[in-house]
């Protein structure tokens, strides 16, 4: 069992857990992810590592309640435990020779972007960041990003904070103004990464994206997470999750992400039925599990 040491509600439906996972914390590097399972019978889902502390033995994950498993995860509180927390998985990212990097994060994608920029910042690399969300309320990690960025742009789709518009608009502006970067890292919903990579391509700037396809084991044994990169099939779990954004077939990725849409709905409806309070319509908190 792995204990949740701390829980923060970053935005409506976006939550942060600090997990007690010393072995994972010891080996974790930026760009890696974990697979977790809440309980027996639960699904294995991948979550990108948003931060880690080897000394304290903690790993931070951030998730958005979009499906049944993340919804159920959101009912847990500090002190609760989950069954499995496996990692660190995937290939760590490295930027040995960079001087200036641009990070672009949309929605939940800001969380996995953060450890990469933090590492770059600590290496003395100049970091420029653009982060965005639908609304001011949905924006996460602003303070953290400020701390590791030499310059930070904030955008919201509805204009409730910072620039009114998508992060890709600012990305385009910076490039049009002639600003140069050794690499651009874009993390967010697939459509954002697709559009972002299309914007950077004519400038010939290496562009890294981080993919989050459906996974089961996370160790390369099922191939469920396969993505087409430069016409070759890669497994995101062991070859990624970071890839060259100019080579990824995002349309295929988006289609594959929809594989279990019907089943996700069945699962979600069942969960709602079982956990929704008939009086308030809210999802009930999880019952304390046995580890307590």
């Amino acid at each position: 069992m792995f204990k949740i040491l701390e829980r923060k509600d970053l935005a409506p439906s976006i939550k942060l857990f600090v997990m007690d996972a010393p072995l994972v914390a010891k080996k974790a590097k930026p760009g890696q992810f974990v697979i977790l399972r809440i309980r027996e019978g639960g699904e294995r889902i991948p979550l990108t590592i948003a931060d880690y502390d080897a000394e304290k033995g903690t790993v931070t994950v951030v998730f958005q309640e979009v499906g049944k498993t993340t919804r159920e995860l959101g009912t847990l509180k500090a002190g609760d435990s989950i069954q499995d927390f496996v990692g660190p998985l995937g290939v760590p990212v490295e930027f040995p020779h960079h001087k200036k990097v641009l990070g672009v994060g949309g929605g939940l994608g800001v969380a996995p972007l953060y450890p990469k920029l933090k590492m770059l910042h600590e290496q003395g690399v100049e970091v420029v960041s653009i982060i965005g969300a639908k609304t001011a309320e949905m924006l996460i990690f602003e303070e953290e990003m400020k701390a590791v960025s030499d310059r930070l742009y904030v955008c919201t789709d509805d204009g409730s904070k910072g620039r009114h518009g998508f992060v890709t608009v600012v990305l385009k502006e910076l490039l049009e103004q002639g600003e140069k970067f050794d690499e651009i890292i874009i993390i967010g919903p697939p459509i954002l990464m697709k559009i972002g990579a299309e914007i950077t391509k004519p400038y010939g700037i290496p562009t890294m994206v981080s993919l989050n396809p459906i996974m089961v084991d996370g160790t390369g044994m099922c191939g469920g997470c396969r993505v087409s990169v430069g016409g070759e099939t890669k497994f995101a779990c062991v070859d990624g999750p970071a890839f060259d954004g100019h080579k990824v077939d995002f349309d295929e990725l988006m289609k594959r992400l929809a594989t279990y849409r019907d089943e996700e709905k069945i699962s979600m409806d069942k969960f709602q039925e079982e956990h929704e309070c008939k009086l308030t319509g809210k999802i009930k908190e999880a019952e304390r599990n046995a580890a307590e």
Partner: peptide, 11 residues
Amino acid sequence: YSFPQTDTPIK
């Protein structure tokens, strides 16, 4: 095979 009693689906 126990979906949706268990959470992992298959098509």
